[in-house]
Computed example of a mutant assay.
Amino acid sequence: MRKYILSLAVIGMLLITVMGIQSCYSNVSMETAQYAVNGQKLYTTHCQNCHGAKGEGLGKLYPPLTDSTFLNKQRAQLACIVKHGIRGPLQVNGKTYDGIMPGNAKLNTVEIAYILTYITTTFGNSTSTYTQEEVVKNLENCKK
Rank of each mutant, 00 (worst) to 15 (best):
H51E: 00
Q34T: 15
K73V: 12
L61Q: 12
Y62R: 02
T44H: 11
T32L: 08
T69H: 11
Q77I: 08
D67L: 03
L42A: 07
L71R: 03
K60N: 12
G55V: 02
A53N: 15
T45N: 07
K73Y: 06
K54G: 14
Q34D: 11
Q40D: 12
L71N: 04
T45C: 04
G52S: 03
D67G: 05
L71I: 05
C47F: 00
T66R: 09
P64S: 13
P63R: 02
Q40L: 09
G59M: 06
Y43C: 01
Q48Y: 00
G39L: 02
Y43K: 06
T69N: 12
T66V: 06
G52T: 02
G55C: 01
E56A: 10
K73A: 11
K73F: 09
A33P: 06
S68R: 10
C47L: 00
Y43P: 00
C47M: 06
K60L: 11
L78D: 05
G39W: 01
L78P: 04
A36G: 12
N38F: 14
P64D: 13
F70V: 08
V37K: 03
Y62Q: 08
T45M: 12
E56L: 12
Q34H: 10
G57A: 04
Y35F: 14
Q48N: 08
A76H: 09
S68P: 00
V37E: 10
Q77V: 08
T69M: 06
Y43V: 01
T44V: 15
Y62K: 03
C50G: 03
F70W: 06
K54S: 09
N38E: 15
Q74C: 09
F70M: 07
Y35A: 10
G52R: 00
H46I: 01
L58G: 10
Q74K: 09
K60T: 14
G59T: 06
S68Y: 08
Q48G: 02
Q74A: 09
Q77H: 07
R75M: 10
K60R: 08
T45W: 06
V37L: 13
G55H: 00
E56W: 05
S68D: 05
L71P: 01
V37F: 15
G39D: 04
P64T: 15
L71A: 03
N38C: 12
N38K: 13
T45Y: 05
T45R: 05
A33R: 05
G55K: 02
T45L: 04
H51G: 05
N38V: 14
D67Y: 00
G59W: 04
Y62G: 03
S68C: 03
G55D: 02
